[in-house]
């Protein structure tokens, strides 16, 4: 599970937060309500998560309530991979 978190963290840092250090992007940092990800960037992250972890996400699973923090996304990935 920590690998999943790390993979997502590194992707977000490299793609959307160039220049930011990893220690500022915490497992519980809000991604969307904080302005880090806008709607297009969220689509990009959904697509990355699907490919990287070999899962498919339903629209209701990527809402702002369940897809706003690294820890929530990692938990979702674990659940989907069974």
């Amino acid at each position: 599970m920590s690998d999943v978190r790390e993979t997502i963290r590194q992707y977000i840092l490299a793609t959307y937060l160039p220049g930011e250090s990893a220690e500022h992007l915490l497992d519980d940092t809000p991604l969307r309500t904080s302005g880090i990800l806008d709607s297009l960037a969220t689509l990009g992250l959904v697509s990355f998560v699907e490919k990287e972890f070999g899962i498919e996400l339903e629209a209701h699973e990527t809402g702002i309530d369940t897809f706003d923090r690294i820890e929530d996304i990692a938990a979702l990935v674990d659940r989907k991979r069974g």
């Binding site: 937060l17 250090s21 500022h24 309500t33 904080s34 302005g35």
Partner: peptide, 14 residues
């Protein structure tokens, strides 16, 4: 401030 801190700040303004 960090990038995240700035983005968060902006998200409250814009």
């Amino acid at each position: 401030p960090s990038v995240i801190a700035m983005k968060t700040f902006c998200a409250h303004q814009l």
